[in-house]
Every structure is written in C-alpha cells, then in structure tokens.
Write a protein that binds this DNA or RNA. Structure first.
Lengths: 228, 228
DNA sequence: AGGTTCTAAGTTGTCGACAAGTATACTTGT
DNA sequence: ACAAGTATACTTGTCGACAACTTAGAACCT
C-alpha cells in the first residue's frame, strides 16, 4: 500500500494531517463509499480530540469527498466516473488558463516549465514516483498560476489535494508499467509547451484537449470501481 | 444597508450564521480588503466562543474571501475585477453544463425553468428583490443540476454563497433602477431557454456567452472598488 | 403479534481553558 | 541615539466537558 509522503506533513497541523490521511484512505478505497464515519470514530482512530477532526471533515466536505449530515459524515468517494469528471474540470481550468496565456509573452513561463520537465526526467531516472507526480502537478499549477486569474487559481487550489492524491496513485501505477510509458508522459508535456509557444488559440485548445483525453485512458486500475 | 434574509438562517448553526454575516460584510465593504481579523475579535463581535468562528473562517477561506495565515485572517474581499472573474467562472460552469444538455431531452427541464421565471415575474410585481434574486439563482442552479455532473455541480456549490450574495446586492440595485431593467433581465432568461430548446451547440454557446457578457455590465456600482 | 411509548446510546454544536508560538513594545546597555 | 535582548500581550491549535438532538431498540400495552 502506497504511503503518504510524510515529509509533506512536517509543518502541518493535526487537522491537516488527518485530512490528508483520510483523503488518501477514501480515494484508494480503504474507507469505502457509502460508509458513514463519525467524528468520535475518526478521533479515536487518530488518537486526538474532536477539534482537529472537525477541521479535517470540513476540508474533505469542501472537496466533495464526504457529505456532512446530521449524524455522521457519509463517504462519497471517487469511482472511475468521478475521476473522469475530475479530468473534465481540470480540462476546463487549464484550457481557460492557456487560452488566456495565448495573448501574453510566455518565454519566462516556458523556462519554468522546462526546468520542471527536467526534474521529471530526473525523477524518472531515480525511479521516484512521488517526486515525478509532484513535478507533474507543479507543471500544470505553474501554467494556471501564470494565467493570473484569482478565481481560476482558487478553483484549482480547491481540487488540488484530490488531483495530487489521484496523481500519486496513477503515477505509481505508470512507474510499474515500465519506462516507455513514462517517456510518453514526458512527451505529452513537451507537446503542451509547443502548444503554448505557438500562441495560436485553436492549436492550444486542441493540444490541451488531447492531453486530458489521453490522460483519462491511463487510470482505470488504480482507482476502485463503483462496486468495490 | 441591505440586511441578510433572516429566514434563511432559521435552522443554521452559529458557525453558518457567522459565515453568512461575515460574507455579506466583506462583500459589501463593511469589512475592508486588507484588514486582518482574528478569531477572538470575531468571537467577541458575535458574542460566541471561538469554535463556531473557526468554522466560519474556514468556510470563508474555502470560498476565497479571506486568507488564513499564522496570525489572523487577511480579508481578500471582492473588488470589481474579482466579480468579473467570478462571472468568468460562472460562464465556464454554465457553458459546460448547457453543452452537456444539448444532447439530452430538455422538455422537463424547460418546464421547471418556466415555473421559476414565473416566480421571478411575480417577485417583480411584488417588488421583492430578495425573492427575485433567489429565483434567478435557482434558474441557473436548476440548469447546472440537470447536467448531471457531480464535479461541476460541486464547483457550483462552492461558489454559490458568493454568487448569491453578489446577486442579492446587484439585484437590489436593479430594482432601484425601475421596471424596464427588470423586464430585460427576465427576457435574458427566456433567451437562455430558447437556446436550450434549439439543442444546437453553437447557438447555446453564443447565448450563454452573451448572457454573462451582458450581466457583467450591470454591476459596477453595488460592488466596492479596489480603492474603497 | 403488532403497534406505541419510553429509554438509552450515540452524535453534533458549542463552550472555556491551556499550551505553544509570534509579533510588538519596552528596557537596557553602549 | 541606537542596537540587542527581553518581557508582554495576543494569536492559533488542541483538549475535554456539557447540552441538545437524533436514532435505534427495548419494554409495554392492546
């Protein structure tokens, strides 16, 4: 079972730690869809009081992973359909961001992206799936940030923890499928950069559309299905 | 000064009540952008303990109205640019939803929408701005819900409180500008319905684009500017 | 047996208190 | 006058406790 990178939780509060751990358990199916979890149960599970648990549950609720009800929180979870919907949203956000960048000067941005892709290739050589997925995430986050649109950036931040967790799981799977798959992932990022460089709206639109359509195809086994 | 419809807070917890009240004060400028508010200050302001305040601040933070930092919460607020960005996001969401509905049978949906527009006309006659804005909100929410896309619906729910508050303020202003403006608002909703009825993607796209482009123009005085 | 009321266990919402950490203001030494 | 160190007030994170409410089940009546 994949563990959560503990280095990321170094300066985190108990509430954030619990949220991250619960998020992982919900997405990888340890905690199953339909279950109801109570604050007391989570608190005893992590050996804390209810205060940080309440914070964690509110976070997870705002991410749509659970639904807060009068008695207990119902686990919504993520099946394959939900992850596809997540990619729909990612496409909407990134497509919007890149369209916005089509008019600007992107040379500085392209430099940043190149550095990130370099780190991805390094992570591939070191067989470091966690680092690889993190740089993958950074790549897209850098683009969205560059678009300079507060609300869109906020939208991204609201789905970011889920996207990160899903990428952690799927990237781990890609690593197990050999190096060729990894090279194709990196190539896809170069394609995006070329799209940005062209500064043509229709080219960009097509490139981004293909990117996410392709990403969708490679996730069907690390995510639990509806009937798990 | 516009008050918050107290009927909506009937069954709400203290945390939700505080969140709603703070949200309104931030958006209408009573609490100004750049200020930092502490949990203790809010708690004494509302005469409660810090627990519901923490919940409220977390809510407002997830909506992007404040930024939680180590010492105090910094008020981000909404200036005119931010509201325009909000309309960008609304356009993205609703455009996606309506494109999705272009393929489905929408007769049932159109019936619902007609009933809502009827209520809007009634609210106009009764000079009830609160009811009018609420039905306006319901109109768009009904469309988004009908698209049957969990993630998009969740996105909508995450911006819904802000949209509702902004609509409350702007609608109040439209009411003060006389009946003609109100008729044109209602007409815009009929235009959307006709777009949906056509079931043609390009027609729908154009209609929705025009709707939000037009809505943007009518908000420049109820929202405080950057320098207020 | 079936339906109803009452009890009991469990849940959330809210409170006040304490510890740990941070920024500000003050004091002190030069 | 100014720098450095210290004290102080204020902030958040976490805890345990209590009240109000919901749900499920047991006991009881018909």
């Amino acid at each position: 079972m994949l563990q959560y990178p503990s280095a990321w939780l170094q300066n985190a509060s108990l509430g954030e730690t619990i949220a991250c751990e619960l998020r992982l358990r919900i997405i990888n199916g340890t905690i199953k869809t339909g279950e109801t979890i109570s604050e007391n149960w989570v608190a005893s599970e992590f050996g804390t009081s209810r205060s940080p648990v309440r914070e964690a549950l509110k976070t997870l609720s705002s991410e749509g992973l659970i639904r807060l009800e009068r008695m207990g929180a119902v686990v919504v979870g993520l099946d394959v359909t939900d992850v596809e919907e997540l990619y729909d949203v990612r496409f909407l956000i990134e497509s919007f961001a890149q369209q916005r960048l089509a008019q600007s000067d992107v040379t500085g941005l392209l430099g940043c992206l190149q550095r990130i892709v370099d780190k991805m290739e390094l992570a591939m050589k070191h067989n470091d799936a966690v680092e690889f997925s993190y740089q993958d995430l950074s790549f897209h986050e850098t683009i969205i940030t560059a678009a300079n649109h507060n609300r869109i950036l906020h939208l991204w931040k609201s789905i970011r923890p889920i996207v990160m967790t899903v990428m952690l799981l799927t990237t781990d799977e890609i690593f197990s499928k050999g190096e060729q798959k990894l090279h194709s992932v990196i190539d896809k990022h170069y394609t995006i950069m070329k799209g940005l460089e062209s500064r043509k709206r229709d080219v960009i639109e097509q490139v981004v559309r293909e990117y996410f359509a392709d990403s969708r195809k490679t996730l069907h086994s690390s995510i639990p299905g509806r009937t798990s």
